[in-house]
C-alpha cells in the first residue's frame, strides 16, 4: 500500500512537469499576452519594455527552463495581470470553489443515489419512470441557460435569493466558509443547485442501471430468497455491487466541478478559481494558467488515487497497482 502510494506520487511528479510544458506550448500557440496587456495607445518603446518586464523577450525554452527552476524553489511565478504570486492568487480563491463544489456534490449524491435506487427497484412504476424522465431535464439544457433562468425566477421575480457573489463567511480552522451563515447559504443555494443538476442526473441514471442489474444477480436473488430484509439486501448487497462505477464518476465529477465551474462561477459572479481561470485564459495570464492547472492536476492525481484505493476496499478482487494479469 505504502509502496504503491509512493510509486503513484512519483509518477505524478512526471505528470506535473509534462503538464506545465503542455500549458507553456498551448499558451504560446494561442497568442502574445503583450497584445492584450499593453495599452493600444502605447508606443514601441513601451511594448519592448513590457515584453521584457514579463520575461517574454527570452526564447521559448529559456522561459520554460526559468519556470522549472523557479518551480523547484516553490515559486510558480507572478501573475502578468495582477503582479501577485500566481499560487497566492489561486489559494485565495480556492476555498470558495471547493465549498461550492462540495455543496453541489453533496446535493447530487444525497439525492441522486436514493432516487436512483428507487428508480432501479421499481423500474416500471410511475415513480420510477418519473424520476428517469425528470433526470433527463437535468443534463439537456446548458448550465449557463439554467443558471440565468434560476436568477430570473429567484432573484429578479421573487426576490428571495441574491443574484451574485458569496455570502458572509466564518473561519473554520482558518479557512473562510460560508455555508454556516444564513447569508452564506442564501448565496450558495442557486450556484450549487446549478452545478449539481448535471451530476444529479448522471448519478440517478448510474445508480438505477446498477441496481437493476444487481437485483438480477444470483447472490441478490439468493439473499432475498433467504428472507433477508429488503433494507439489508439493498443496503449491503446491491449498493456494494453498484458502487464502483458510481465512485469513479463521483471522483471524476468532483474533480471537474472544482476545476471547471467556469460557467456557473461567471453567471453567479462566484469569487472562485473557475472565474479566475477563464479571466486568465482570456488575458493569456500564463503564470496563473500554469499554476492553476498544476494545482488541478495534483487534485486529480489525489482524487484518482483515492478512488483506486476505494476500488480495492469495495471489491477485494481488485488489487492495487493492478498486477499484470496476463501471465
Amino acid at each position: 500500500m505504502l509502496a504503491y502510494a509512493i510509486r503513484r506520487f512519483g509518477q505524478s511528479f512526471i505528470v506535473l512537469v509534462f503538464m506545465s510544458f503542455l500549458v507553456f506550448v498551448g499558451v504560446y500557440a494561442i497568442g502574445n499576452p503583450v497584445e492584450l496587456l499593453v495599452n493600444p495607445q502605447a508606443d514601441e518603446a513601451e511594448r519592448i519594455r513590457a515584453t521584457a518586464a514579463l520575461g517574454l523577450d527570452k526564447p521559448f525554452l529559456e522561459q520554460y527552463w526559468g519556470f522549472l527552476v523557479g518551480a523547484a524553489k516553490g515559486d510558480l511565478g507572478k501573475s502578468f495581470v495582477f503582479n501577485v504570486p500566481a499560487l497566492t492568487l489561486i489559494l485565495e480563491k480556492l476555498p470558495a470553489t471547493i465549498e461550492l463544489a462540495f455543496v453541489a456534490m453533496v446535493l447530487a449524491i444525497s439525492l441522486g443515489i436514493p432516487l436512483g435506487l428507487v428508480a432501479g427497484l421499481k423500474p416500471d412504476s410511475f415513480v420510477g419512470r418519473g424520476i428517469m424522465a425528470g433526470s433527463i431535464m437535468g443534463f439537456s439544457l446548458p448550465t449557463f441557460w439554467v443558471g440565468l433562468v434560476l436568477i430570473m425566477i429567484f432573484s429578479v421575480h421573487l426576490g428571495w435569493l441574491p443574484s451574485n457573489g458569496r455570502g458572509e463567511t466564518v473561519l473554520v480552522a482558518g479557512i473562510p466558509v460560508s455555508f454556516l451563515t444564513m447569508d452564506g447559504i442564501a448565496h450558495l443555494a442557486m450556484p450549487a443547485t446549478n452545478l449539481a443538476l448535471f451530476k444529479l442526473s448522471l448519478l440517478i441514471r448510474l445508480t438505477r442501471a446498477g441496481t437493476r442489474e444487481a437485483m438480477l444477480q444470483d447472490y441478490v436473488k439468493f439473499a432475498r430468497a433467504k428472507g433477508l430484509p429488503q433494507r439489508r439486501v439493498i443496503g449491503v448487497h446491491v449498493l456494494k455491487n453498484i458502487l464502483i462505477p458510481i465512485v469513479t464518476v463521483i471522483g471524476l465529477e468532483l474533480g471537474s466541478v472544482i476545476a471547471f465551474a467556469i460557467v456557473t462561477e461567471s453567471i453567479f459572479a462566484w469569487p472562485g478559481t473557475g472565474k479566475l481561470l477563464i479571466d486568465s485564459i482570456n488575458q493569456l495570464d500564463r503564470p496563473v494558467i500554469v499554476a492553476y492547472l498544476l494545482v488541478i492536476v495534483s487534485l486529480f492525481v489525489v482524487i484518482n488515487f483515492v478512488v483506486d484505493v476505494l476500488y480495492s476496499l469495495l471489491d477485494p478482487r481488485v488489487r492495487l497497482g493492478g498486477a499484470a494479469a496476463a501471465h
Binding site: P33, V38, Q41, A45, R49, A53
Partner: peptide, 10 residues
C-alpha cells in the same frame, strides 16, 4: 514600476 504590463511612461 517593476513587472508593469503596461506602464504610463509614454
Amino acid at each position: 514600476v517593476p513587472n508593469s504590463p503596461s506602464s504610463f511612461a509614454t
